[in-house]
């Protein structure tokens, strides 16, 4: 089984509103997979169906080889979920949350303490483990929730907006945990996000979703590459004439000089730097600096939807 999550034309309607529209999702085993889209795009609805929280209106899906409707219980046993909203009890301690989760998911009694220690180690909750949740910071709560989702060694971990509302440093930490987890455990991570940088830095593959439909799904690199829009920024002496000369190169789609800098629009810019430098040298120009800029996922999103991701999905 190549894909650990696979859906076939899965849809969810709420009355007249179609939240998820015929989505075919294919998540490779052991990947970190991102569902990227603006608020209201249908991300949470989609993963709620995959987590068996919501039943699809039509279509079907399998998680870890189990049908999400017919084998809901098996699906639940194979997944861990971290909800967008907090799902912790203030009056319990961190350790109690983990113990409770282990019991609910049927982790064998003799393994429990070991697993709990392992997870506590991973999420670095340290000596806060035996304190009440109400004394925890936002980042600690989120880490506890992620850790809790791991106690029963799920095959898939669902994270719905894992870093929503967290400060940059905590976000960075959470990303590290997710990465580490993905590398050390046999686990696939499916996360939803509306943060471009999160999808870009963290995910092996990204599905861009808008208005309930998957627009594109590929690795962030490929998605950006498809835009064919790397920018090479050069500074050199005698700029104006150089622009005319370099324009003759067929890989340069556009070239112009702006504020004393020369901008070249190219594809796969990283492979072209030597050629550009050689060309300049052979023509007698001296390059002072050269800088390569890749497009970001935001550009990809704009290309396919015509709007920015920070705007509500229209």
């Amino acid at each position: 089984m190549e894909y650990i999550i696979e859906s076939w034309d899965i849809s969810k309607k709420f009355g007249d509103f179609t939240a998820v529209n015929s989505v075919n999702l294919k998540v490779p085993r052991n990947s970190v997979y991102g569902v990227l889209g603006p608020n209201g795009a249908g991300k949470t609805t989609l993963i709620s169906m995959l987590c068996t929280i919501l039943k699809p209106t039509s279509g079907r899906a399998e998680v870890n080889g189990y049908d999400i409707v017919k084998n809901a219980k098996e699906v639940r046993a194979s997944i861990g979920i971290v909800f967008q909203s907090r799902a912790l009890d203030d009056i319990l301690t961190g350790r109690e949350h983990l113990e409770m989760h282990a019991a609910l998911y049927g982790v064998p009694m003799d393994l429990r303490n070991e697993r709990i220690e392992e997870v506590l180690d991973l999420i670095a909750l340290g000596d806060k483990a035996d304190e009440f949740i109400k004394t925890y910071s936002g980042g600690m709560k989120r880490r506890l929730e992620i850790g809790r989702g791991l106690i029963h060694r799920p095959k898939v971990l669902f994270l719905d907006e894992p870093t929503l509302g967290l400060d940059p440093q905590t976000r960075e930490n959470i990303w590290q945990y997710i990465r580490k987890l993905n590398q050390t455990e046999d686990i696939t991570v499916l996360l939803t996000t509306h943060y471009m940088d999160e999808a870009d830095k963290l995910c092996d593959e990204v599905a861009i979703i808008n208005q309930g439909q998957i627009i594109r799904a590929d690795s962030p690199q490929n998605l950006k590459r498809e835009l064919k829009a790397d920018t090479l920024t050069l500074t050199l002496d005698g700029g104006e004439t150089f622009v005319e000369e370099i324009k003759k190169k067929e890989y340069v789609k556009e070239a112009y000089s702006l504020d004393g800098e020369i901008k070249l629009m190219v594809e796969r810019g990283e492979n072209l730097i030597p050629d550009v430098v050689n060309f300049a040298t052979s023509q007698g120009y001296v390059i002072n600096s050269i800088e390569l800029e890749h497009p970001n996922l935001e550009d990809v999103f704009i290309k396919y939807t015509g709007c920015k991701i920070s705007e509500e999905g229209k």
């Binding site: 098996e74 639940r76 979920i81 799902a87 009890d89 609910l104 998911y105």
Partner: peptide
């Protein structure tokens, strides 16, 4: 429990 989201944690358990 529901407002705090804690009910979800119980309801998604294989129970």
């Amino acid at each position: 429990d529901r407002q705090y989201g804690f009910l979800k944690e119980i309801l998604v358990a294989p129970l």
